[in-house]
């Protein structure tokens, strides 16, 4: 750092500095700066301090358990995209208090989240967590796993494989999008294979339903005892469905299966808990519209940006992030469709 002269210098003759107005607005020559420089540095330091204090959050997620049955709770995230403000808390996680201990569904977007979620659950229920179910391999659903190191962690084989394959890239991107909320987060894989079927855990009859469509492995957990379905990201409620690993045909089949369950309540992966099947219907409607829009675009020779401009139908106006998810979905799903719309040209010899 440059030294600041401690002794005041004699004032320069008037002519050398220009008018008084210039003196106020224009930077002084470097060698000319005396004590004023000290003030400037102090002010800068002060500003940095204030700025620093504003972003040096405690990184506490606003976790508020929402009781949806006598022994079932949901932590509802915002229907937003990842940001430094929400720290990735854009996802629903839940827990069921059984006679043997607590069953947790999804561990959230970061190590900090998993830790805070587990602390809250064990404090609020006075019971230990006995197992963790991971609905699928997307980062907002399993990056809190580190907090459950000694707890059995159940996932479908396809989910585990995808976590292994893509987990590192997800984590890097989450650091980019949410910043310090991610501190210390690394991949902890599931260690138990979730098998389709029903099993009684501490008095709750829990059915693991193995599906796919949103991702290659989508686990839905249906609690026959309470009639509550934890649908993972197979169901979105007033939040546009995301498609980076989607197979829409398989997804629609999965939704039919969920539709057939004798359920009383749905916990979607994103959006509000519902007492009816409306979110299943909305997700199905949105996916069918999306699929038709993309197919029609390819059949009419549109380029990606032109499809991205498609207006969102009135009935999806309440669906958060519909426009940006349409943009993303075009990137995910359009290339295969448009390739099908081309024919080989006649190559010259």
């Amino acid at each position: 750092m440059r030294k600041i002269p401690l002794t005041p210098r004699p004032p320069l003759p008037q002519g050398e500095r220009g008018s008084k107005k210039d003196n106020l607005l224009a930077p002084l020559p470097l060698r000319e700066r005396g004590w004023g420089e000290g003030y400037k540095q102090a002010l800068l330091a002060l500003l940095l301090l204030i700025h620093g204090a504003a972003i040096a959050d405690t990184f506490g997620y606003p976790l508020e358990p929402q009781q949806i049955a006598p022994d079932t709770y949901v932590l509802e995230g915002k229907t937003e995209d990842f940001s430094r403000k929400n720290g990735g808390y854009i996802v629903n996680t839940g827990y069921i208090i059984t006679a043997d201990g607590v069953v947790v569904i999804d561990s959230g977007p970061s190590k900090r989240f998993g830790e805070q979620q587990r602390t809250l659950i064990e404090k609020a229920t006075g019971k230990p967590v006995i197992r963790l179910y991971l609905t699928h391999h997307h980062p907002d659903h399993f990056l809190g796993n580190q907090a459950y190191g000694e707890i059995p962690r159940y996932a479908l084989p396809a989910s585990k494989q995808a976590m292994q394959l893509e987990g590192e890239a997800f984590t890097a991107n989450m650091y980019r999008m949410t910043g310090d909320w991610m501190r210390g987060t690394s991949i902890t894989l599931p260690d138990k294979e979730a098998k389709a079927g029903t099993e009684t855990v501490g008095g709750h009859q829990l059915e693991t339903i193995a599906l796919s469509g949103h991702t290659p492995g989508d686990l839905a957990l249906f609690d026959h005892t309470t009639g509550i379905l934890f649908a993972g990201d197979l169901v979105f409620n007033n939040r546009a469905a995301t498609t980076p690993h989607a197979n829409i045909a398989a997804w629609l089949t999965a939704l039919e299966k969920l539709q057939s369950l004798p359920l009383k309540m749905i916990v979607p992966g994103h959006g509000k808990v519902a007492q009816d099947k409306a979110p299943i219907e909305q997700t199905r409607d949105y996916l069918q519209w999306l699929s038709a829009t993309l197919k029609q675009g390819a059949a009419n020779g549109l380029d990606m940006n032109e499809v991205m401009q498609t207006p969102i139908p009135e009935r999806f106006k309440a669906v958060a992030l519909a426009h940006s998810e349409l943009q993303r979905s075009v990137s995910h799903l359009y290339p295969a469709l448009e390739t099908d719309s081309l024919k080989p040209a006649k190559q010259a010899e």
């Binding site: 005041p8 004032p11 003196n23 106020l24 607005l25 930077p27 002084l28 700066r33 005396g34 004590w35 004023g36 420089e37 003030y39 400037k40 002010l43 800068l44 500003l47």
Partner: peptide, 13 residues
């Protein structure tokens, strides 16, 4: 001297 330099520096900033 200091009196008028201070506002100048703040303005600059």
């Amino acid at each position: 001297m200091t009196l008028f330099r201070l506002p100048a520096c703040i303005l600059l900033l």
